[in-house]
Each structure stands twice: as structure tokens, then as C-alpha cells.
């Protein structure tokens, strides 16, 4: 193995390669990889009929539809408003900007259970926001709309935080060039700035979507958890676990894991694309 030899020679100056890589792999295997394979091994004990019965049951299908739908619309709303928030934070100055910037991360810092009870109380028919919506016949807490609100809350920082650095690094000379060639402000945004932001925007969207698909804590309080109506997939898995239906819960978990892995792959590809984009800009 010639590559390994040259590698070892080059690395010889610094110690600890075997120790640190060994510990990293050991800890990773023990905490993450072995436990995760348990899900697949447990599922392999099911027959295909048993597996498909659980995974394609009407209740599961309704849960996928709701999970994907609510997560998609929540990520979409965040893409629009997150872009505006990032734009305003990078390009304009206004009173309290630093405070607003720090506050963007609140949904990450605030435990999901706290977010859950807070949103459920705010949007309940007698809550601060909920009572304003009652005259219009809009119910939020304990409905699908409530799930959407909770998922929007937890996904809020993703788009802001992925778009913000790209916008900060944007070379203003490109705008100058476009302006000197007679482009309007609107044209500059859509034709020059927006295309540079696209990879970051899509990465943020995918991250927010992935996070929303798996979310449990903030949704469990604001959803009434009624099968077929307001039950997202993590809630369905939880209710199977509460009934000690481990095989069913595990089969559903496999479906979610496969979706998560695909999203992770998509995010990695987007990140690679976005890095290439940025290096092209620098060159």
C-alpha cells in the first residue's frame, strides 16, 4: 500500500493519529452506528407482509401526508421570510439590529417542550393570538394549522443562517457592474444576487424541512394527536411505543431514517454545489 506509507511519513511529525482516530471511531460506533443498525436488524425480523402492513396502513399514509405537507409549507414560509430577515440584517442598519440577529437562534436554544406549550397556549381560542382569530373562525391550536405554526417556529433560523453568510460575502462590484450596464434594482436582485443565493436558500430549505419532519416536542402539545387528522409521523411512532408495539414503531422509524438519509445526501450535494459556486466567484 504505497499511499499509506507516504501518508504515514507525512504525518509522522504530529503524534496521536491512531489514538484520536481510534477513539473517534470507537465512540461513534458505540453511541451512533451500532444503535442505529439495531433499527434495521429489528425490522429485518418482520416479514414483508408485516412490514408493508405497518408502513402503508391508512394511519401511516395520513401521517406521512401531514408530516411532509406541514414541513414543506413551514419551510416554504421560512424561505420567504428568512430571506427577508437575512437581507435586512446584512444590508440595512436599524435600531436593535444586534438584538434581532441574536434572537434568530432562539428556536434552537429554546427547548422544544417550552416552545410547544407556549405556542399551544398563545394560539388556543383564549390565548393572546388565538382569541384574535376566533372571530374569523380560524382555529390554530389542536388543528393541522397549529402543527404548521410549530414547524415554522422551529425552522425559522435555518434559512436566515444559511443565506446570511453568502449575502455578506457577496461581491458588491458585481452589483456595480450590473448597475453601470443599466440594470434596474429589481433586475440586479433577480438576475445577479438571487442566483448566488440559490444554493444557500435550497440548503436552508432542506435543513428546515428535515428538521420539521422529525420534530416531536413542539408539535406534541399544539396537536390534538388524532389519528388520520393531526398525527404526524413522530407522534405515530410515539403512540406505537406507548402501546409497546416496538416492531411497528421500528418499521415506521426505518421509513423516516431512509427519508432523513436522502435529505442528508441532498444537503451534502447542495453544500458541495454552493462551495463550488463561491470558489467560482472568488476566481
Amino acid at each position: 500500500m504505497p499511499t499509506r506509507q507516504t501518508g504515514a511519513k507525512k504525518n509522522r511529525v504530529l503524534p496521536g493519529f491512531k489514538l484520536t482516530l481510534g477513539f473517534t471511531l470507537f465512540y461513534l460506533g458505540l453511541i451512533v452506528l451500532i444503535p442505529l443498525t439495531a433499527v434495521f436488524i429489528k425490522t429485518s425480523t418482520l416479514s414483508w407482509a408485516q412490514f408493508s402492513q405497518t408502513v402503508f396502513s391508512p394511519q401511516a399514509l395520513a401521517a406521512y401526508r401531514l408530516s411532509f405537507g406541514a414541513a414543506f409549507f413551514a419551510a416554504l414560509i421560512n424561505a420567504v421570510f428568512g430571506l427577508i430577515v437575512a437581507w435586512v440584517l446584512v444590508r440595512y442598519s436599524f435600531f436593535g439590529k444586534k438584538f434581532v440577529d441574536a434572537l434568530v437562534d432562539l428556536p434552537f436554544a429554546l427547548p422544544t417542550a417550552v416552545a410547544g406549550i407556549t405556542l399551544a397556549t398563545l394560539y388556543a381560542p383564549n390565548g393572546w393570538i388565538g382569541h384574535l382569530l376566533v372571530p374569523f373562525g380560524i382555529k390554530v391550536s389542536y388543528t393541522q394549522l397549529g402543527i404548521f405554526v410549530a414547524l415554522t417556529f422551529i425552522g425559522l433560523p435555518f434559512i436566515v443562517r444559511t443565506v446570511q453568510p453568502v449575502l455578506e460575502d457577496f461581491d458588491p462590484e458585481l452589483e456595480d457592474a450590473a448597475a453601470s450596464l443599466g440594470a434596474s434594482r429589481w433586475q440586479i436582485f433577480w438576475r445577479v444576487i438571487f442566483p448566488t443565493l440559490t444554493p444557500a436558500l435550497l440548503t436552508g430549505f432542506a435543513l428546515a424541512f428535515a428538521r420539521a419532519l422529525g420534530e416531536y416536542g413542539s408539535v406534541v402539545f399544539i396537536s390534538s394527536n388524532i389519528p388520520m387528522k393531526t398525527q404526524i409521523v413522530p407522534l405515530l411512532i410515539m403512540s406505537e411505543l406507548d402501546g409497546f408495539q416496538y416492531a411497528k414503531a421500528t418499521a415506521l422509524a426505518v421509513v423516516m431514517l431512509v427519508v432523513s438519509f436522502l435529505l442528508l445526501l441532498a444537503v451534502n450535494v447542495l453544500q458541495w454545489w454552493s462551495n463550488r459556486y463561491n470558489t467560482n466567484n472568488l476566481a
Binding site: L33, L36, V39, K42, L213, G214, P234, I237, M238, L241
Partner: peptide, 20 residues
């Protein structure tokens, strides 16, 4: 692989230890 736990639903993160 190090990032993996981020993309996994918290419910599944608990479930894997129940299975073991």
C-alpha cells in the same frame, strides 16, 4: 457520520436505545 444524529428524529434517537 458525525453529523448523523442531527438528521434523526428525537423519537428515533430514543427508540434505538430501547431496541438495545
Amino acid at each position: 457520520l458525525i453529523d448523523l444524529p442531527f438528521s434523526i428524529s428525537p423519537v428515533i434517537s430514543g427508540l434505538i436505545y430501547v431496541l438495545i
